[in-house]
Design a protein around this nucleic acid. Structure first.
Lengths: 151, 151
DNA sequence: GATATTAGTTAGCATTGCTAAGTAACTGCA
DNA sequence: TGCAGTTACTTAGCAATGCTAACTAATATC
């Protein structure tokens, strides 16, 4: 990799941000197998946490094609973590929602991931935590993540 | 999700950190297919960027079992992005290194990912960039990223 | 009512993960 | 030295998850 004659600070930051995100997630994911739910199912469940979605919406949220999601939902039903129902307004649409079992698995997996990260974050000095909190807010904002919290 | 009576600030930070990393990477990865190299190969190449690795080291770095890496390296050889050689000191060991073609693909893919993030970061105010830079440094540190190079 | 569009499914393929079991090379110790 | 155990990797075979192409059924359009 060649370093340009005039280094661009924002570019270097983007690079380090990228790398940090990769390594952070790699660390967090280690506990996932303990949920007994596969990674794709776990990820889909996280989308269903906010309520029922159509199969197409779920596929879009997961950045996956409809056939892939169709099969994944079938497996999730078989595993008892999701249920499908038909839309009374539009017979083409398949509505998908998480079961209690699915939500429990998601919650457990999430808790373990967060606990892993929390152990790292707890060790920080208050000022560092503040910096990190502020930075996370910035990242959420630039990704357009200000998802409105449910009332 | 139930909020505990006494919320733990570090736990909430860990949760947001987790979510931010997921969404950041999801965004960055969108350009990957343009490299013509599969995701697993691209990730393995990033490990090989720092030089030759044994197959076992590569598997460990990628958090994958040896058989999986064995086959991946075979595919990478077939695709012309990596080459294997034997270790003169230990006949059991397989050394793997990236080819020029592999490094080019990696570099291209990385550049596109970083460019995606850079576009987001460039829009920030200097103070926000500074905060983000500091935060990335903190994350790098708590993940213990100064992996000791082998002697 | 014929035609076009949309939502999902089915079929078939490629990639990538795993475990179990095998091979070859090295290590250690009587 | 020689044989047993360990280590590094490979092979074989299975499961999960991604895709495209082609299909069905329902709705929308004209």
């Amino acid at each position: 990799m060649r370093t340009p004659a005039t280094p661009r600070p924002s570019r270097e930051l983007a690079d380090r941000l990228h790398s940090a995100a990769i390594h952070l997630l790699r660390r967090a994911r280690r506990t996932d197998p303990l949920t007994g739910v596969s990674p794709a199912q776990l990820s889909a469940l996280s989308v269903l946490m906010s309520g029922t979605k159509t199969l197409g919406e779920l596929a879009a949220a997961e950045q996956v094609r409809p056939p892939t999601m169709s099969r994944l939902v079938k497996e999730m039903e078989r595993a008892g973590v999701a249920r499908r129902s038909s839309d009374p307004r539009d017979g083409r649409v398949v509505r998908v929602r998480a079961t209690a079992k699915g939500l429990r698995a998601l919650s457990r997996g999430r808790a373990m991931r967060v606990e892993t990260l929390d152990r790292l974050v707890r060790a920080l000095a208050p000022a560092e935590r503040a910096t990190l909190t502020e930075a996370v807010g910035i990242v959420e904002r630039i990704l357009g993540q200000r998802a409105a919290p449910p009332p």
